[in-house]
């Protein structure tokens, strides 16, 4: 039994001289919901396309359930589901025809009733022609096709795009339920709140490289503090050289703000000898922590 459901090691993809991803490494344990977050163009889809053998890596390896994503691609796909970010189902088919077509590749004829359950959850009309469906309904088709064969591992690339809030909520409930039953999930998104809602661990990808990889809770507990200082009469430049400042000091009116990663006692001691007008020390939001890593 392989120790990890997904094991990516030093994975790279070059497009000529442009870097798609570089030296990406991380693992997923069985039963985990893993978040993969980054802005558009950061390398999320490139990583996923390598896992599905849609594109070939320039270097490194990736294994799913101990099987190589290139050599054992067909075996892997038998136990994997995938919700693509931007794909079309065959427009000339009805939803049912499309889902049947998909199921026959798994050696099953009609999804053992699972399809009907999923269609009901998402209010999906199976008799409609795919070309007649709205964007949101096409996303539902995509979700149903990814789950109807009961995969052990589900890869999702921006799965909630185009879904209304009610359907999004049903989708998240379904994901949690599948996870409880043992499904491992890889959730790629640029929407932090989604990741926060579902995932325990997250990898932040930036410019094709993993910028950070850790528990959501650990991220929250990071020693990062958000400091706001109203300097009053004191020259602003004094505050720019405080040791422990992370990133830039921003100014809004007569207030300065910055992220601080040093010992908070040192900062308070330093500020206590200066006559400042006001000071606030806050826990940064997860969004701000992520933005800190992005920048």
């Amino acid at each position: 039994m392989p120790s990890h459901v997904l094991d990516i090691s030093r994975l790279s993809k070059l497009y000529g001289k442009t870097i798609g991803i570089e030296d990406v490494s991380f693992t997923l344990d069985e039963g985990e919901i893993f978040g993969f977050i980054g802005p558009n163009g950061a390398g999320k889809s490139t990583t996923i396309r390598i896992l599905l053998n849609l594109i070939f890596p320039s270097g490194g390896t990736a294994k799913i359930m101990g099987m190589d994503v290139i050599k054992d691609s067909k075996k892997i796909k038998k136990i994997t589901g995938y919700i693509p970010s931007d794909a079309n189902a065959y427009p000339y088919m009805t939803v049912n025809e499309f889902l049947n077509y998909c199921m026959r590749f798994y050696g099953q004829k009609n999804g053992n009733g699972r399809r009907n359950e999923l269609a009901e959850i998402f209010d999906l009309d199976l008799k409609k022609k795919i070309s007649d469906l709205s964007f949101g309904n096409r996303r539902k088709v995509s979700i149903v096709q990814s789950l109807q064969h009961n995969p052990l591992f589900l890869i999702m690339d921006e799965p909630t795009t185009g879904l209304d809030p009610l359907i999004q909520s049903r989708f998240f409930d379904l994901i949690r339920e599948e996870n409880k039953k043992g499904m491992t999930l890889f959730f790629s998104s640029h929407i932090l709140s989604e990741i926060q809602l579902l995932c325990k661990r997250v990898a932040i990808i930036k410019d094709g490289k993993i910028a950070n990889l850790e528990d959501i809770e650990s991220l929250r507990r990071k020693q990062l503090k958000k400091i706001k200082i109203w300097p009053g009469e004191i020259n602003h430049s004094v505050f720019l050289t405080i040791p422990g400042i992370e990133g830039d000091v921003t100014r809004a009116g007569d207030m300065l703000s910055f992220m601080y990663s040093g010992d908070i006692n040192d900062l308070v001691r330093l500020l206590s000898v200066k006559k400042i007008a006001n000071l606030t020390i806050e826990e940064p939001s997860l969004e701000e922590i992520f933005m800190h890593y992005y920048n």
Binding site: S73, K77, Y82, P84, C102, S142
Partner: peptide, 17 residues
């Protein structure tokens, strides 16, 4: 160009198939 490749290639089919 029909954007159906992401589905087809994510199903249990090899490139040879």
């Amino acid at each position: 160009y029909g954007k159906t490749a992401d589905f087809l290639l994510s199903w249990p089919l090899s490139r040879s198939d």
